[in-house]
Amino acid sequence: MNERELRLKSIEYRKTILTIIHHANAGHTGGSLSCVDILNVLYNHVMNISPQNFDDPNRDRYVQSKGHAVEALYTVLADKGFYSPAELKTLNRYQSHFIGHPTRKVPGVEQNTGALGHGLSVAVGMALAGKLDGRRYRVYTLLGDGELTEGSSWEASMTAAHYKLDNLIVIIDRNGLQITGPTEQVVALESLKDKFEAFGYAVRSCNGNDVGDLLRTLEQVPFEPGKPNLILANTVKGKGVSFIENQIGWHHKVPTAEELARALAELEQAQAELEKVMA
């Protein structure tokens, strides 16, 4: 999929995310919209993961440590054909497997997550297994910036560097906001670049809402042989909808019918403009 097709895809995904959250009357709107471009590029251009190869030991792996942004993941997996998009309507419903955090009961989900600070250690284990078995797969994991105060992420980072896991790609969805407020006001994280470099990563920054920038950054992996890769993906929480962007209240606010209509109208306008440019 080329860059323009990916941009259109991101808009489609945003529409689906907002629609299913509205339908379920629950979900993590802001975080799903901030990370969906990253998932889009990974699943549609970078990773070799599909319903056909999901049992193949050589497939790439994706672990979503920020499990709460599950609506983005479920949307992308439906589009990849892991299940029918109609199943997204069961989100959070009685006896549905489509619950509020990723579970392996949903086809295509690699690891159950939801409690923060867990994904990176599991991804390290997967990457280590790849090295031990001489397999060439890569392991991608997406972390929220807010979850970086969990100490376990730093335990895992030390191990990743120690075992020279250059087959591990850690992506930070750096949207700068967490449920209480800006990350730098809650407990300051910066300088993340310095911290991750000190922990042994090869670090790159990019615009995590720009599919072109994401593509070019991910194409450079491994950034340095023998070092785990880390991408600081600078994003906007709630990206793509003017009245949701950068609003703390939208961490897990659900759009009303009226808000959904306004959001979809904005996204459709963006879609039309993009199609015009492409034509």
Partner: peptide
Amino acid sequence: EVGIAEQNLVGIAAGLASAGK
């Protein structure tokens, strides 16, 4: 060896087990 890091120990173990170890 994962060092004195029990949370990491168990998380890594889960990741390795997922690959058949």
